[in-house]
Design a protein around this nucleic acid. Sequence first.
DNA 1: CTACATGCTGGAGCGCGCTCCAGGTCAAGG
DNA 2: CCTTGACCTGGAGCGCGCTCCAGCATGTAG
Lengths: 132, 132
Amino acid sequence: MDTVVAEKTYTIREAAEEMGVSMDTLRYYERIGLLPSIQRAENGRRIYSEEDLGWVYWLKLLRESGMSIQTMKRYVEVTRAGDHTIEERCAILENHRSHLRGRIEKLQVFLEKLEKKVEFYRGYEMRSKEEA
Amino acid sequence: MDTVVAEKTYTIREAAEEMGVSMDTLRYYERIGLLPSIQRAENGRRIYSEEDLGWVYWLKLLRESGMSIQTMKRYVEVTRAGDHTIEERCAILENHRSHLRGRIEKLQVFLEKLEKKVEFYRGYEMRSKEEA
DNA sequence: CTACATGCTGGAGCGCGCTCCAGGTCAAGG
DNA sequence: CCTTGACCTGGAGCGCGCTCCAGCATGTAG
């Protein structure tokens, strides 16, 4: 079970490519504390593990679903603080979940209104053509 | 039918209040051309008509559904340009519609993933409690 | 040895969408 | 007449989330 298999690692370029983010973003996230503990080679270059990529994936998901960097920082912080923070992690995620639900609902309403407008225009267009 | 009824008008404060935006935003939108032709009183103060509020409503909707100010400007511009721009208006709206649909779908996927994470945490919590 | 690629750092800059502010006008109330 | 308050303008400032850059170190190929 504990066989030591060299886990695949990634340069910053590869990590960026793989995860669909820019190298700058990876460095930026690390700087502000969203990606702590990224290993370095002797020459100082970053080495990303699969686990790191997992974090990037998750951060990207939170970000793209509208969580602010601030909140993400808080989340990362408490997650690193240990098991006793599970409650707060849940709270953050559940809060985000309800924001997300609200947002989706709102967008759906917008979509409907938008569709009505388009239909209206299309109808208008038809009428113009009939006249011609 | 053509009875001249004094249509209700609004000061900028009232309009802002009514539409749930700031007075600054109303001025800003006007400045950049999103709300042209806002009437002025003799003393230079803005007077918003119901129709103006209708525009504000629509702009707000587009904005909150993720349309960029740039695109909104384009939309307003062509709308003001006359009936021959119906095609382009439709194009803009349909484009936005597909963006919006894509976004909603993406957010729904995020939501599911988020929910799984929360469930995972909640499960973890339960297990901890059982042990105690 | 040289040239070129890759990556590092700290800090500046940017695009977006407002938001705030100073300094002024105008009208009503005391 | 003076104060108060609502509103005006042009322009500066801000918060967010990157993005870019100069200047430097290291590594690899020719």
